[in-house]
Amino acid sequence: MPSVRRLDYHYMAMQIGFWAMFAAICAYQAALLTSRGFTNAETGLLIAVRCLAGIVCQPALGSFADRHPHTPLRLIVSLALGVGLIAGVVFLLCPMGMAGTMAVLILMGGFEITSYPLMDAMAIQFIQKGVPIRYSLGRGVGSLAYAVCCVALGLQVTAWGVETTLITHAVLTALEIVLVITYPVCPVEESAAGPAPAPHSALWLLRQNPAFALMLLAILFGLTGCLPMSNFLVNVVTSRGGTAGDLGIALFLMAGFELPTAFFFQRLYRRLGGGRLLLLSMVFCFFKALALFLSPSLPFVLLSQPLQMLGYGLFTPTSVYYVNDSVPPEDQVKGQTLMMVASNGLGGVLGSLFAGSILDLGGPNAMLLFCMACCTAAALLALLSLKMSSRSAT
């Protein structure tokens, strides 16, 4: 077994690399696509297709990883990131219309988004063996990396244009592949009592645990309302008198305020549990949409960003631990992929589709009203899931 210090710091480095890479493609994706002549509705469709590709790819790779426990997860993740890297380079070098852009984003979304839950599982494997990897802190420094990268991207876009973000994405993806492929492999122990239980299907998991299935539905609504506030933050910023350069500052504050959550997350989780924390995160996503809606100018948009700390910042580590506590051990990877499908997958698809169209029809305030409605539905469904869990426990 590798040393705890190496596993811990190496995992933090992977989180830093992934979220910096993710910022390079996601933070300015709306600005990039509109600069290439796409409308807000078309941009929303393209972002949705990118997320939809992750929905299709994640369960397939998750099931493959569950069925082949002797295949190192680092190999699967590295290959997935390699496909995303090649697609990103093609996107940079080859001008293309709607069909070509959609094809490239399908590859980038399908494999880059899929790599994250599998990368999480690389740490969870060691955590389940008693290795005290500080997952929530790793996710927090990842958010900080996203924030810093957004500021750097804002300066880069101002100086050299939005197209150069694709160069940054390619470089950071290559570095992340190096970090992933060098992460230690968790040893697979053969049980003396016989072979481990076979993994179940995703449908079996949802049928056997209706409270878990209902919480996934709540998260679907919640992320449908939450993700447009980052994907289309450029529209909110410019509508309040800001510029594309100011977007970098807003994104820095948004991601930076996810870091403090890492320091008190474990205490909150022990006190409240995963279900209550997920409910709390949906409530604060609503408050953030409300604060942005009421913001009369750019400074108020910036002052709204601390709400990210108990909104999406709380959701991310909680969702991983919630799955770990709700799903049988043999289905851990599949459970994490189902969570990612419901949140950044389907939530990203529906949020991008609806938000892009609503922006064209009614502007940023109409989009924020839509976000508030989705987060309200999410909170109600999460509350119902908690009641269902308490009834089944008794």
Rank of each mutant, 00 (worst) to 15 (best):
G241Y: 06
G245R: 09
G245P: 00
D246K: 06
L247E: 06
A250I: 07
A250Q: 04
L251V: 14
F252D: 06
L253Y: 01
A255E: 12
G256N: 00
G256Q: 01
F257R: 00
E258L: 08
E258P: 00
E258G: 02
L259R: 02
L259S: 05
L259I: 11
P260I: 12
P260M: 13
P260R: 02
T261V: 15
F263A: 07
F265Q: 00
F265A: 04
Q266H: 11
Q266E: 13
R267I: 13
L268H: 10
Y269W: 08
Y269T: 00
Y269D: 01
R270Y: 15
R271V: 02
L272K: 00
L272F: 15
L272C: 05
G273H: 01
G274F: 00
G275Y: 12
R276H: 12
R276L: 11
L280Q: 07
L280H: 02
S281T: 11
V283H: 05
F284W: 13
F287M: 13
F287H: 03
K288Q: 15
A291L: 14
A291M: 14
L292I: 10
L294D: 06
L294K: 07
S295H: 05
P296W: 07
P296D: 09
P296S: 12
S297G: 04
S297P: 00
L298M: 11
P299N: 10
F300H: 09
F300C: 11
V301C: 10
L302H: 09
L303S: 06
L303H: 04
L303W: 13
S304F: 02
P306T: 14
L307Q: 01
L307A: 02
L307N: 01
Q308V: 06
Q308R: 01
M309Y: 05
M309A: 15
L310D: 04
L310H: 02
L314I: 04
T316F: 13
P317M: 10
P317Q: 08
P317Y: 09
T318I: 01
T318K: 00
V320T: 11
Y321D: 09
Y322F: 15
N324E: 15
D325V: 03
D325G: 01
V327T: 10
V327W: 06
P328Q: 14
D331N: 15
D331P: 11
Q332Y: 08
Q332R: 15
V333Y: 00
T337C: 13
M339F: 14
M340D: 08
S343E: 07
S343W: 07
N344E: 08
G345W: 07
G345C: 10
L346V: 15
G347S: 05
G347N: 02
G347A: 09
G348N: 05
V349L: 14
L350W: 11
L350E: 07
L350N: 04
S352Y: 06
L353E: 08
L353M: 14
L353D: 05
L353Y: 13
L353A: 13
